[in-house]
Simulated scan of single mutants.
Amino acid sequence: MQQTKLQGVSIGLSGNELKLGDKAPEVSLVAADLSEVKVGGGTGKAQVIIAVPSLDTDVCATETRKFNERAASIKNTEVFVVSMDLPFAAGRFCSTEGIKNLRTLSDFRDKEFARAYGVLVADGALAGLTCRAVFVVDTAGKIAYKQITDDIVDEPDYDAALNAAAFASGSVATQS
């Protein structure tokens, strides 16, 4: 079982453990307007899929704002923030924060994303939520980058994720 930490205490994660090069599972999530949005799979665009426990926490809000600002410059890339928050709350967060360069999606219905990507917190205070993770899916639908933060309270490595997204999208021709 994969693990992460919550304020230094180990917690288990359940679901499939994805590795670099694996096919990114295609799953359906719920947008703020209650429409269904698919993430994963090969779409011809790179995808940055960011899992957060809840947009209603300082670290998650900061992370979403930073990805909103920084990922907008990467061509041929879609950016999604996935949480268990209700779609209405996610929509309100985006309106309040001026989030326009990414989509917030909810996995509240059946936790399909959390299980498929192996980021469902299995025990501890946050059981049933997603841990903090970033996946970059290349244009062909393969996992090109993965980070599950060492501790859920830590922000991810933005530079590594965004560099991986630039390569995965074809915005950067070769990696040195």
Rank of each mutant, 00 (worst) to 15 (best):
Q2D: 15
Q2S: 15
Q3E: 05
Q3I: 13
Q3A: 15
T4N: 08
K5Y: 14
I11E: 12
I11A: 00
I11Q: 10
G12R: 13
L13G: 03
S14C: 12
G15C: 01
N16T: 15
N16C: 11
K19M: 06
K23W: 12
A24E: 02
E26T: 09
V27D: 04
S28K: 14
L29H: 10
L29Q: 05
V30C: 11
A31Y: 02
L34M: 14
L34K: 14
S35E: 07
V37W: 08
K38T: 10
K38C: 09
K38W: 10
V39F: 02
G40W: 02
T43M: 05
G44V: 03
K45F: 07
A46G: 05
Q47H: 08
V48Y: 00
A51E: 00
V52R: 14
V52E: 09
V52N: 08
P53N: 09
S54A: 12
S54M: 08
L55R: 05
D58K: 11
V59H: 06
V59E: 15
A61H: 04
A61F: 11
E63Y: 05
T64P: 09
K66N: 13
K66P: 07
K66W: 14
N68L: 02
N68I: 03
A71D: 13
A71C: 04
A71W: 04
A72I: 09
I74V: 02
I74Y: 12
I74R: 02
V79E: 03
V79I: 04
F80L: 07
D85E: 03
D85S: 13
L86S: 14
A90H: 13
G91N: 06
G91A: 06
R92A: 07
S95N: 15
T96A: 15
G98C: 07
G98D: 08
K100L: 11
N101D: 12
N101H: 13
L102M: 08
R103H: 06
T104K: 13
S106W: 00
D110K: 08
D110L: 12
K111V: 10
E112F: 00
F113N: 04
A116T: 01
A116P: 01
V119E: 03
L120M: 06
G128W: 11
L129C: 08
C131P: 11
A133D: 00
A133Y: 09
D138I: 06
A140M: 05
G141E: 08
G141F: 01
G141T: 08
K142C: 06
I143D: 03
I152F: 06
V153P: 07
V153F: 09
D154E: 15
D154A: 13
E155K: 01
Y158M: 06
D159R: 12
A160G: 09
A161H: 07
L162Y: 14
L162A: 11
A165H: 00
A165T: 10
A166F: 03
A166R: 11
A166Q: 09
G170W: 02
G170A: 05
S171W: 04
T174F: 14
T174Y: 14
Q175W: 12
Q175V: 12
